Simulated assay, not measured.
Amino acid sequence: MSLRWLPPLLVVLAACSAPGGGKSFVATDPCSVLKDGDAGALKGTPAKSGQACDFAFDGLTAKLTLREAAFADESQKLLADGGTGGVIAGGEGDSNNRPVTTRCEDSSGEVTCDAVLEVRERQLVTLQVVQRSNDRNAVGQVVQGLAAKAYERLVTT
């Protein structure tokens, strides 16, 4: 039995198994993940810094970062400070629910919520949303909504 076909087969399998058709997850432009209307009107142009992007929407700011790390490790950091776990439901035709952990705190009429979402194994979106508010739950729902939008857009790229 000849094994001459094995190296080309391994190359084909490696190419097929790369996420995003061979494109690195962190090579995705983080400023392309959120859009105008996701949390109100987008004000100005999002500012990119490495794998992070700062968005200014009506009444809130959001920082989105794409990272390759273990979800359990990043989630535990938020849970240790009083965060809560949840899931983002897969979209139409997508039965995969994805884990998300959020933590919100308020100070002087401003709520800051941090979240980590696992898009795929070792592919994370971290979000930080800051909004003038006294309602942690309302800002937490905004973070969940932005995480859902990010997931929806990232699984189609």
Rank of each mutant, 00 (worst) to 15 (best):
V100N: 03
D54T: 14
G91L: 02
T65G: 03
K63Y: 06
E121C: 02
A41I: 10
S108W: 08
S49I: 04
F57P: 09
Q123T: 07
W5N: 06
A89C: 00
A15V: 15
N96L: 14
Q141G: 10
A150E: 07
R136D: 04
V116S: 03
V143G: 03
L6A: 15
G82Y: 10
Q123S: 05
D38A: 11
L146E: 07
L13I: 04
P7C: 04
A14M: 13
L9G: 10
G109I: 09
A14K: 07
R98G: 02
F55G: 05
V155S: 11
A138R: 08
A39T: 10
F57H: 06
E152H: 10
S95A: 13
D106I: 04
A14F: 07
N97S: 13
C113W: 05
K23G: 10
V111A: 07
E110S: 07
S107I: 03
G145A: 15
G109A: 13
V143Q: 05
V111T: 07
V119Q: 05
L6M: 08
P99G: 08
S24Y: 01
L146M: 06
G59R: 09
A150Y: 01
S2L: 01
G109D: 12
G85M: 05
S75A: 15
P8S: 00
A27T: 12
S108Y: 03
T102C: 01
C104L: 04
L3Q: 11
K149Y: 01
E92F: 05
L146T: 00
G93F: 14
V155N: 15
D73R: 02
D54F: 04
S107G: 03
N97L: 03
K43E: 13
D114E: 13
L3S: 07
A138H: 07
L9P: 00
E68Y: 01
C31N: 12
E92I: 08
Q141P: 03
V12I: 14
G50Y: 01
T156S: 12
L117R: 13
A47K: 15
E118T: 04
A115T: 09
G140Q: 03
L9C: 11
S107Y: 04
M1L: 01
L13A: 15
M1I: 02
D54K: 12
G20P: 06
C31T: 09
Q141C: 00
R153D: 10
T28Y: 06
L9M: 10
A70N: 14
A41W: 11
A89E: 15
V11A: 14
M1R: 00
L79C: 06
D114R: 14
V143E: 00
V12F: 08
F55E: 11
D81Y: 01
R103T: 00
A72Q: 07
V155W: 05
C53N: 13
E110M: 14
K77N: 09
S2Y: 03
D106C: 08
Q141V: 05
C16G: 15
T28G: 01
A80S: 14
V142P: 00
